[in-house]
Amino acid sequence: MIKTDVVIVGAGPVGLFAVHQLGIIGLKSEVIDNLDKAGGQCIELYPDKPIYDIPAIPVCTGEELTKNLLKQIKPFKTNFHFNERVQEISNQNNNWIVKTNKNKIFSSANIIIAGGVGSFEPRKLPLKEAEKYEEKSIFYSVRDKNKFKDKKISIFGGGDSALDWALELSKTSKVTLIHRRDEFRGSEHTFNEVKKLEKQGKLNIKTKFQLASIEGDKNIKFITIKNDEEKIIKIETDYILSFFGLVMKLGPIAEWGLNLDKKHIPVDSEKFQTNKKGIFAIGDICTYPGKIKLILSGFHEAALAARACFKNARPNEIYKFQFTTSSKEIQERLGIKTK
């Protein structure tokens, strides 16, 4: 069991800044995120899009913002638990016990949910029958490419993942790449490579087509695809790989007994505490009168929630407000040598 002062759910910008605000007041935190890296939506949805409303930073990209936040919290040597999702929580003697889907267990007086719009998960194929083949004949990511050797693979999608895997797997398998339009949004270079292979007859491309049906018993035997003119093509298929990006799902948080307002968690605007003592929600996932979904609002919420966490984590100590400019204590925590 990992003991800490605060478990932070979500490593997006607001979760990262919460690490900072907790760190300077002397609280330890552990961060859990379902993605494989920090940054949340900033990294996953718009790494290259410029952001213009971070105070004192006229412009930066989602990726730059994430990098700088990670730099800012480096002194606190925080543990990140990536590719993990918080599964369940329970309360024991005013302490929250947090369990992840990989059976890691944390014990902490506080939980800060900085979960954005939920955890990122692959967007599933729209057909009902797709579910029963999932992880058997249908995959949303590739863990072991050897599985696909000498098989017939139908790849769906128009982005880099679809193009990259079409290219890679066509070396050892019979690949059909299927996309809803002629234009691919993946890199032009990869697309040209894929086109070259098509000309050489090493790979098939079907554009303006979408999945219509999946046929098989235990395993998939063939699929049919359909275009706007209702033309249907049958393709013998052993495996489907589908790359339609990620969606955000609130996931198990919905089962924690917190009050919910649609996909948001209502909080007070003093501590950003939920209806459960010691559980806070900050950033896009929280709601209160006047809430604005801006990163800068999330930073403010992080600062206030962090102070509220102090009282739970150190019930016998008195919290003393200090400035980073003048407090030796804070500067020590930041690893700054003072005279």
């Binding site: 967007r123 729209p126 999608g157 128009g158 982005g159 996309h179 809803r180 234009e183 949004r185 979408q210």
Partner: peptide
């Protein structure tokens, strides 16, 4: 716009 088309690739059952 192209960027909107790109996003629509990901949508649930996109049509013309």
């Amino acid at each position: 716009e192209d960027a909107e088309q790109d996003m629509l690739d990901m949508a649930f059952e996109p049509k013309k």
